[in-house]
């Protein structure tokens, strides 16, 4: 029985994740169009809602090109490494509390309830950069190589502040278990959400969101792609479904990171003024909060120009890292004083 329940949960969560990723490709194009006073894709289906489907079909039927001199094994591994970690990390995100549907006890609405959930997410999302590096290295192209190189340097300078900021939340809630982090914030009073912790919460939230952009290779930190200088960066040589996998990986990573931000700072599935809301309300709340961050990803992308490479290094090491460290210290001080 429990096996069936896990199977149901897995298919729902992964279906949801892939659906979100597909919807995000459309949302990206639509919102960018709106911001530039255009209309955006509107030919496939009513209002263009079937565009991701058409894109998918197109990707499948495209010719797969493996460049001459490419390292075939690594070349194939690249897209998998880019997409798989992002899809794995969704397993520990709790979408709602204890759930009973039609008298069947579904337990916590997440695939697993790891005690080191946060560590699991951070470790795996750190792994996803290997996809970019491998893809860049194996392509046997200077543009790809530069893209991969940048991705690795960027990851080193950003992961640190990201983890420091996540640690702040761990310190505040006293657990690495994502369910417990949410439960600490789920008191019916939304001022208990970590983003409303004076100073520490706000600085942490802003820092975390910014580093998330770097983590997922999104604007304004997408040096690994960087069309004007590097053609397409690490995925210059990729075509067909391999390219689509990179894309899928990016959007899945965005979704997971948006979920994580929600869990860490916005109280996950906790509904304001309603401590034990029914699961459907909790899931709805969770999705609304996540949707905001997903929108933020797109919003920022179409607002800011790309940073310069050295500016990113400056920002990462000289500004974000000290701030994240100070923030962690401050969080420690707040906890020991209260």
């Amino acid at each position: 029985m429990s096996f069936v329940i896990i199977l149901i949960k897995a298919s729902l969560i992964y279906g949801g994740l892939l659906g979100t990723a597909a919807a995000m490709t459309l949302a990206e194009r639509k919102i960018s169009a709106w911001m530039q006073l255009r209309i955006g894709p509107n030919r496939v289906g009513p209002g263009g809602v079937l565009q991701p489907l058409a894109d998918g079909v197109k990707f499948i039927f495209k010719e797969e090109v493996t460049p001459d001199g490419a390292n075939k094994g690594l070349f194939r591994l690249g897209p998998i490494m880019a997409a798989a970690p992002a899809m794995l990390t969704i397993a520990v995100i709790p979408f709602a509390g204890e759930t009973t549907i039609f008298g069947i006890d579904f337990g916590l609405l997440s695939l697993t309830d790891l005690d080191i959930g946060l560590l699991f997410v951070l470790a795996l999302s750190g792994l996803s950069v290997y996809g970019v590096i491998l893809g860049g290295w194996a392509s046997n192209s200077k543009y790809s190589l530069l893209g991969g190189l940048r991705a690795s340097a960027q990851m080193v300078s950003y992961e640190l502040s990201l983890i420091m900021t996540a640690l702040t939340v761990v310190a505040l809630s006293g657990s690495m278990n994502l369910r417990e982090i949410v439960e600490v914030q789920n008191t019916g009073n939304f001022l208990d959400w970590h983003c409303f912790t004076p100073v520490v919460g706000q600085v942490g939230l802003i820092l975390f969101v910014i580093t998330t952009f770097a983590e997922t290779n999104r604007h304004p930190f997408d040096f690994a792609e960087c069309e004007p200088e590097l053609v397409g960066g690490f995925h210059t040589e990729y075509s067909s479904m391999k390219f689509a996998l990179f894309f899928l990986g990016e959007y899945c990573a965005m979704t997971v990171m948006a979920c994580l931000t929600t869990v860490l700072f916005l109280g996950g599935y906790s509904v304001p003024f309603w401590e034990d809301a029914p699961w459907i309300v909790q899931v709805g709340t969770f999705m609304t909060k996540t949707a905001f961050f997903l929108f933020l990803f797109i919003w920022v992308r179409w607002t800011l120009p790309r940073f310069r490479y050295d500016q990113l290094m400056n920002l990462g090491w000289k500004i974000f890292f000290p701030i994240a460290l100070a923030n962690l210290l401050l969080a420690g001080a707040v906890i020991s004083l209260s």
Binding site: M35, L37, R38, V300, W302, T303, L304
Partner: peptide, 22 residues
């Protein structure tokens, strides 16, 4: 830099509701 970012975000958000030119 951050306040200027928010100013930019406000501009792009406003643009979303302006009449289309396409």
């Amino acid at each position: 830099y951050l306040p200027e970012i928010f100013r930019g975000l406000a501009i792009t958000f406003k643009k979303m509701f302006e009449p289309r030119v396409t």
